[in-house]
Amino acid sequence: MTAIGFLYPGHSAEDDYPRIEMMLAAPDVRLPLVHTDIGTDAHRVDALLEMGSADRLAAGVEELRLAGAEAVVWACTSASFVFGHDGAQEQIRELARTAGLPASSTSFAFAHAVRELGVSRVAVAATYPVDVADLFHDFLKSAGTEVASTRGSGIITAAEVGTWGRAEVLALARAGDHPDAQAVLLPDTALHTAEHLVELERELGKPVLTANQVTVWEGLRLAQRTVRAPRLGALFGG
């Protein structure tokens, strides 16, 4: 049995995780999830720095250990890349020390997933305000990924993002695509995307990486598990 633990901020699109667990169709893989206290629900730099603080992440670690987690992933993009590349690296080092387990975050999951796909140039289609989306652009560049374009949507709260459905997700991806991009990234774990990955890739004609998708993939990578799941897009062998 392989159990990957996730620390998820608040309540928005956490139901993507049991959905992805079913889509993996691997009976020996479990994806236990613990909610963290987000404080202020805002895609604003000061709020995101507090959301991703070591104390808030540490509070959920023991529950994941008791659930048998072999690795833990901070299932949040914005409250990791907002610290910058070095700060986000220190965030997961501290999480690993606290948990006594391999650890990562959604921001690094995107960087690793881009390399796994063998692409070098991406487009970012973000729900965030432009200033926050630009910080993700900077993080990706620091991780060695060329960013052809970055689009922010100006959404302040995760709660609002969590209400978006298929039509909004497809529109976001279309609007954020760029002809020079080899893949499109949708970086918000508050966005429901698991059910739409095949359609997104068919619509854009290229790989699409979404936050909850890459977060699960990253956890499996940390646990040295490879699972082929075509319904989860090119990253999972689709």
Rank of each mutant, 00 (worst) to 15 (best):
E116R: 12
I4G: 10
P179W: 07
E201C: 07
G219A: 06
D188I: 00
A183R: 10
Q182P: 03
E116Q: 11
A173L: 05
T36Y: 08
L49A: 13
L232E: 08
T2E: 12
Q224F: 00
L170H: 08
L24S: 13
L7V: 02
G233I: 08
A96N: 10
Y17R: 09
R228N: 10
E63L: 14
F6T: 05
T36A: 15
D46Y: 04
S80P: 00
H196L: 14
T145E: 07
L172D: 03
H137L: 04
L172S: 04
G162D: 08
I38L: 13
S78E: 03
A158K: 01
K141P: 00
V169Q: 06
T150G: 12
A126Q: 00
G52L: 11
C76P: 00
I38Y: 06
D55A: 15
T36S: 15
P27M: 06
G100E: 13
A229C: 07
L64Q: 08
H192L: 09
V214G: 09
T189E: 05
G152N: 02
P102K: 12
V82M: 11
I20F: 04
A99R: 10
A47H: 04
W74G: 02
A181G: 08
D177I: 01
P187L: 07
T157L: 04
G205N: 12
D55E: 15
F81Y: 13
R221F: 02
S142C: 04
A175H: 06
H112Q: 13
H112C: 10
R151G: 01
T127G: 01
A143V: 10
R151F: 00
V198S: 13
V114I: 14
V82S: 15
V216L: 06
